[in-house]
Design a protein around this nucleic acid. Structure first.
Length: 577
DNA sequence: GCCGTTTTCGGCCCGACTGTTTTCAGTCG
């Protein structure tokens, strides 16, 4: 049974935890943790490389990790890992999810009380035996019980759209405060991560203590987690944690850069600063001959780098690119001229064809590609051939009455990819459409090989313009189905099939981590909202943010083409696209 | 355990806050 990339990363991560528990050298622990990160985000088939023992030259994987990954990938097991975790049950690792508990405390609880799961920890707290331990106390015991309570009712991660709304409300409150000079969100939200764990805010002010006090007293704050003179953390009603850092105006760019992260990006940036003879932290540079810094961009400039947009700050090659002046000019939402993939009341949409067309025009778009579900998705009221033919006529009628050189609709379908990779409509039916997006909606538990072949077969169809939500994941709710991304990207390049960036915030699928690779293979991206209502067309703003995260430029995104060009492009046979 | 304009050893980010302490360890970001 071959291991997956995720399993390999998880093993390294678990080793890091176990070494930490044992009090191992923290730098060794970090090496394993970074190894997990590298495996997780490596751009290529790292499992195959590990099996073949060809991991040389990958930064962050030294000899020891390479050997271990090879053993793991080729035998399905790693002796070192197995031995380490002998005395710990699976449930032990859930303890690390608890706020306020780290390796030292968990090790102490395990050693003295035999705690090896959340339930056993809960029992120990309720019996009062935790408070008596050295280094623990009554408050710690209460905090542990509270943390367990939060875990039990979930919600420790939030979708980008949910987080964005919450952040905008709080930013508005902060802007109103008279002592605020500058304010910004930071953290993973500013980096446009698809899911965020908390919100970070930075304010520049001459009265930091007043701001942390103000923050703790916000109407949105259900609970104050910590509150000092320069930082304050609150928890909102829905469990979302928000952190504020109050700094001086001079410190602001440094704090903004620092708390935007990512951690990995910052480690690399700081080591670069050291080479310039400066030390860099959240308050400024220290050292000799310090540069003038007024804006965040001045920090990058001082280090000889082009400005790195927050979305790219994941330590995935952006620093090297900025050093060489080779950062891409990223796509912006204003570059989008139209969009594809939306539903109407004909299948499971909330609004009519007319309403969707109007909403698209209000957004300033020049075209909208309609795509209701096909007949094998009865749960979504999918269209059969007769109803689809009617809709094609309705689109033509709409274009005749309202269409112009400024706006038109494209008739399409979100056609189901059936279990064997054939499509829900005949080629003849599909050929009468302007475009089609092919998606998997059933038989989602096929193994990776079958699923990959199934989707490739669909992409080989001459009338499939684009592949819809590649993995079917629903963020925080449903795992991706098993596909081989490398092979699908290669097939898309080969068949000239566009890959959709489904920017419904529940999905963001294909994942941003794969777009750089797809782009370099010449695959086009279509930023599609998968809108089931007029309001959801606005998801394309998030889509542009996530596309930026995937290093995509304007020319990599199909729907930056203006209407006339798009209409011509859709008429081309796939091979000529 | 990884890495190298400090190149095979000696560094590897560090400050704020909390709770248990009485000068600090642990956690977090």
């Amino acid at each position: 049974m071959p291991v997956t990339r995720e399993q390999m990363a998880a093993v390294l991560e678990e080793i890091a935890l176990l070494l930490e528990i044992q009090g191992e050298n923290p730098f060794k622990v970090r090496a394993y943790r970074q190894g997990a990160e590298v495996v997780e985000s490596y751009d290529g088939d790292i499992v195959a490389l590990a099996v073949e023992n060809k991991l040389d030259g990958i930064k962050g994987l030294g000899e020891a990790l390479r050997d271990k990954l090879h053993e793991l990938a080729s035998t399905g097991e790693l002796g070192f890992h197995k031995k380490l975790r002998e005395s710990y049950p699976d449930s032990f690792f859930t303890l690390f999810q608890l706020d306020g508990l780290g390796p030292k405390k968990i090790a102490a609880l395990h050693k003295t009380l035999g705690v090896d799961s959340i339930p056993s920890l809960k029992a120990a707290c309720e019996a009062g035996s935790v408070a008596g331990l050295s280094g623990f106390g009554a408050k710690t015991q209460t905090k542990i019980l509270e943390a367990i309570g939060r875990i039990e009712q979930a919600a420790t991660a939030f979708r980008l759209d949910v987080a964005t709304l919450a952040a905008e409300e709080i930013l508005e409150e902060l802007r109103k405060h008279p002592d605020v000079l500058r304010v910004s969100s930071a953290g993973s939200l500013r980096r446009s991560k698809e899911v965020v764990g908390d919100l970070d805010f930075i304010v520049a002010t001459n009265d930091p203590a007043a701001l942390t006090k103000f923050f703790g007293a916000l109407p949105q704050a259900k609970e104050i987690i910590v509150q000092g003179d320069t930082k304050c953390s609150i928890r909102l009603e829905d469990g979302l944690q928000c952190d504020l850092r109050a700094v001086t105006n001079a410190q602001f760019p440094f704090a903004l850069q620092y708390f935007t992260g990512s951690k990995e990006h910052n480690v690399a940036i700081r080591s670069r600063a050291l080479k310039h003879g400066w030390s860099l932290n959240e308050y400024g540079f220290t050292g000799n001959d310090l540069p003038t810094v007024n804006e965040e961009g001045d920090i990058y400039k001082a280090l000889g780098l082009d400005f790195i947009p927050p979305a790219l700050r994941e330590n995935r090659g952006e620093i090297e690119a900025a050093d060489e002046g080779k950062l891409p000019r990223l796509v912006e939402w204003e570059n989008l001229r139209g969009t594809f993939h939306c539903h109407t009341t004909d299948s499971d949409g909330k609004n009519t064809l007319n309403a969707m067309a109007e909403a698209a025009q209000e957004l300033g778009l020049q075209y909208l590609g309609i795509s209701d579900h096909s007949k094998s998705s009865p749960q979504a009221n999918g269209l059969n051939e007769v109803r689809l033919a009617k809709q094609i006529d309705a689109v033509a009628a709409w274009n005749k009455e309202f269409g112009s050189a400024q706006f038109r609709l494209f008739a399409g379908s979100e056609v189901d990819i059936l279990k064997d990779g054939s499509l829900d409509f005949s080629d003849e039916m599909l050929s009468s459409l302007d475009w089609a997006v092919a998606s998997v909606h059933n038989a989602t538990s096929l193994d990776e090989d079958e699923m990959t072949k199934r989707i490739i077969r669909a992409m080989e169809n001459p009338y499939v313009t684009m592949l819809g939500h590649m993995t079917g994941r629903l963020l925080l709710r449903r795992d991706a189905y098993r596909v081989n991304h490398e092979k699908l990207i290669d097939a898309a390049a080969e068949t000239r099939t566009v890959i959709e960036l489904n920017c419904n915030p529940k999905r963001f699928d294909m994942d941003w981590r794969w777009w750089h690779r797809a782009r370099d293979k010449g695959v086009l991206c279509s930023i599609n909202p998968d809108a089931h209502s007029t309001g959801q067309l606005q998801y394309i703003r998030f889509g542009a943010d996530v596309a930026r995260k995937g290093w995509l430029r304007r020319e990599d995104v199909l729907n930056t083409k203006p209407l006339a060009e798009m209409a011509e492009w859709l008429k081309l046979p796939k091979a000529k696209r």
